[in-house]
Amino acid sequence: MIFTFSEDYETAIEILAKGREIADSLRLELAAISIIKHDDIANTYIFCGADKVYSIDSELHADIVVDCLFSLINQHKPEILLIGGTRLGKEIAPRIAQKFGAGCVTDCVDFSLEHEKLMVKRFVLGGRFIAAQRFLRNPQIITVPPRRFGKKLDTARTGEIIKTSAKLAEPRVQVLEIKDKSSQMLRIEEADIIVSAGRGVKKKEDLVLIESLAKALGGVVGCSRSVAADLKWLPDEHWVGLSGHKVKPKLYIAIGISGQVQHIAGIRDAKTIIAINSDPNAPIFKACDYGIVGDLYEIVPKLIEILQ
């Protein structure tokens, strides 16, 4: 059996599509685990690939999720566990793996089967290298980054929904308060065109240039870590790179971004990368399709004018 779990609905159905492929190749059953209050999505999970849905009516809390998954794994002994690689997912996957003395591969970007054995790949060494890994025993626990794989929907699919409850211990971590970051969350992973700002932008007000260009192109604004984390000019959801968001737009324009490996790690899957930078030796020019050496304060306004 293959189990899937993600608390994030979109990710949950993405990993079901991936899970379905693996389940078909290995002739295994695919079961989605849904932990939510007042569940009404179990049917969708079946349409999206699940043979079974274990539906648990509960608050979402890491300690509870770990308990629920632990007891379901003990009962059903799945070979593979696919977990949505959200921040919650990346906390619970290794915790469960440790309980079973099992391996876990986080942020898996590629799956293949070799002699009926799963081989997975993930980026390592600052995102410049890719490692191929194999599990030494079951359960094989994997987290899959959100927005990495596609979805499938087939409303003719049928399956079984099993409502179950888990006997839960009191969570050891108590949540006191939740502060929303912003109501309009940008999903930069889904953008087709991204115009990104780096340290080459001198003042926060000058971000207007980047925004105008993004607007002229019908795209969204991204940025390097410096701009999001150090200068705090833009919120985290714009942050592109190894420790930010991994994006895959048709067009990525890096403006005043030097192109350090950690930034490049986030844009490897972009179809076309364009760089604007005043330093001809900036590493970004070795990582782009088209580049122009020059001052962004001259080039970007001119570009906006032409494009409008």
């Binding site: 099992a102 391996g103 591969v105 290298f129 191929a132 194999r134």
Partner: peptide
């Protein structure tokens, strides 16, 4: 160990 690394490229 739980996983083995086959290659790093």
């Amino acid at each position: 160990a739980g996983v083995e690394t086959l290659s790093i490229l």
